[in-house]
């Protein structure tokens, strides 16, 4: 099965169909997607600002990762629960959309990086390792902002 056939199949799911046939479902799900983005922003920035040397510098990055964890998961759950139906409603538009491809690539990297790299290394940072901490937070911010920005551009194409 080619990639096009997969996207074509996804376009025809009942969920995608229901959203396409409704005039208000897409905007409402999209608005919830944006509310999830704000929560995601809070959960990511709390840790990344600290790693960059700002925000709650009175607390350890590892503590903030723990505090942000349930909210990061909640935000991601809301993002996927709204983002997947939005995608299903216009899968063929997303096929061949450069912003969508960029968003999915950046999202995969952001997830692997946040949970596989940042959250693991954060407990092992020595207090003197300023530049390592900054890189750890900076890369996270860059990845998540790329996801958000390219997400907006899916609509412009």
């Amino acid at each position: 099965m080619t990639a096009f056939e997969i996207f074509d199949r996804l376009e025809q799911t009942a969920i995608g169909e229901a959203i396409r046939n409704s005039s208000w479902l897409f905007p409402v799900v999209e608005a919830l997607h944006l509310v999830g983005l704000a929560l995601l922003g809070g959960a990511v920035l709390l840790v990344d600002l600290r790693l960059l040397g700002f925000g709650l510098t009175t607390r350890s990055p590892a503590y903030l990762v723990g505090q942000a964890r349930p909210w990061l998961w909640s935000a991601l759950a809301l993002m996927f629960a709204t983002g997947i139906p939005l995608f299903l409603s216009e899968a063929l538009k997303c096929y061949g959309s450069p912003p969508f491809a960029l968003k999915m690539g950046a999202l995969a990297l952001a997830l692997v990086y946040t949970f596989g790299v940042r959250n693991r290394l954060v407990g092992r940072l020595s207090p003197a390792a300023h530049w390592r901490a900054r890189a750890l937070g900076g890369i996270s911010l860059l990845l998540w902002f790329t996801v958000a920005a390219s997400g907006r551009w899916v609509g412009f194409y």
Partner: peptide, 9 residues
């Protein structure tokens, strides 16, 4: 839209 991450976040 991105300002929302920082502001509302």
């Amino acid at each position: 839209v991105l300002s929302l991450l920082l502001f509302v976040g």
